[in-house]
Simulated scan of single mutants.
Amino acid sequence: MRYKKKLIILFLLILLLTAIQYTLPYYPEIVTFYDKYVFRPFQTLRNVTIGLIPLSIGDILYIIGGVLVLVAIARWLFFLIKIRTHTHDFLTSILHSIISLAILYVIFVLGWGGNYYKPSLTTYWDLDKRNGAYNSSLISYDAFLIQKLNTYAPAYRSLTFRQTEKRAREYYRQYTDSRTKMYGLNVKPSIFGFFMQHLGIQGYYNPFTGEAQVNSFLPSFMLPFVITHEMAHQSGIAAEDDANLLAYVLSTTTKDSSFNYSAYLNVWLYTHARVRAVDTHMANTFKKQLNPITKSHLDTLRAIRRKFDSGVNDYSSFLYDEYLKLHNQKEGIETYDKVSISAWAWERQRDSMSTKLIRLP
């Protein structure tokens, strides 16, 4: 009886989460309602308030959360050692922790998670990804991207983090119909930047604060694509391949050579890796055609990877892979490089698009 209230609260939370999980995937009208009346106003409110603070509040909350987890584990160990006299304390602490996690997950779903059930951009834009054999399509796109890189590399100019973030926000307002583009977009440098280097993380969206954090230690030629990717999440695009696709489409639509180059380079990295997996000789032949500027940028990325490579990023990749699979992205972390096919489909249909404004679901 002493745990009755806590168990009732836990039961209600589980019931709510179960209802959400079995409702959103099958009722698009509820997802539309969620997007219009829950996510959009909540994202705007969070950015208008928290966005004014230059420091990443989400990073700070994660630090506090990590400390609380360690304290909880330490308490459990103490209670287990003294289990005869602290059974009640141990069970109460376990119940409190489970309830807290359930509440956090409800906040996650309401503040962000519902976006995972929107239609993909390829479906929303009616992109035709059929173009003969899969491998031949990748090879064609690799050649296309190298041509673009060789064209835009001489015009590329390095931008600071703030210059890139400001331009990206303006391009969202100018070229997309994002419903959060006026007040819901704002990217901050993460205070975990150096640690993110070791984990191989370029940026992330915080579903609790609505903030987009980017590793400010990234080379400047990577920033335009990464920042527009994180702003895609702030615009309600959840799937990673869709965020990559939107970052590519937006960056290559602008008249900004630095954004153009960054998008072509980032997507070429995904595409070239896939081509190399199926035809190493062809991949090496293509790579030799790259201009000296891009080759120097690849040397920079290679040096960073060698410097910070460790077994830690393997574990972080595994955990993130499981997270994506849990949230309606069956291919997990491999979802990222699906942009190679969807972006090529976009290029083939770019000129036939009915409107020049980039539409978002």
Rank of each mutant, 00 (worst) to 15 (best):
2 R>V: 15
4 K>W: 04
6 K>E: 07
7 L>S: 02
18 T>N: 11
24 L>C: 07
30 I>P: 01
33 F>P: 00
45 L>W: 15
48 V>P: 01
58 G>N: 07
59 D>P: 03
63 I>D: 01
65 G>W: 04
65 G>Y: 07
70 L>S: 03
72 A>G: 08
73 I>W: 09
74 A>Y: 14
75 R>F: 14
76 W>K: 01
76 W>Y: 14
76 W>G: 01
86 H>G: 00
90 F>E: 08
92 T>A: 00
97 S>G: 05
102 A>L: 15
105 Y>F: 13
106 V>I: 14
108 F>C: 00
118 K>D: 06
127 L>W: 03
127 L>C: 08
136 S>T: 15
155 A>L: 07
156 Y>M: 06
161 F>H: 03
169 R>P: 02
171 Y>K: 06
171 Y>I: 00
172 Y>P: 04
175 Y>R: 06
175 Y>N: 01
176 T>C: 01
178 S>E: 06
185 L>T: 00
189 P>D: 07
191 I>G: 00
192 F>G: 01
195 F>E: 10
196 M>D: 06
200 G>N: 06
215 N>H: 13
216 S>N: 15
235 S>D: 09
242 D>Q: 04
245 L>V: 03
248 Y>S: 02
253 T>W: 03
260 N>L: 11
263 A>R: 11
265 L>E: 06
269 L>D: 09
270 Y>L: 03
275 V>N: 04
275 V>E: 00
275 V>Y: 02
282 M>C: 09
291 N>P: 11
293 I>P: 08
294 T>I: 13
294 T>Y: 15
294 T>N: 11
300 T>Y: 11
311 G>R: 15
314 D>Y: 15
318 F>C: 00
327 H>R: 06
331 E>H: 12
334 E>M: 09
337 D>Y: 15
339 V>I: 12
342 S>W: 02
345 A>Y: 07
347 E>K: 08
349 Q>R: 06
352 S>D: 05
353 M>Q: 09
354 S>N: 12
359 R>I: 08
360 L>V: 06
361 P>R: 03
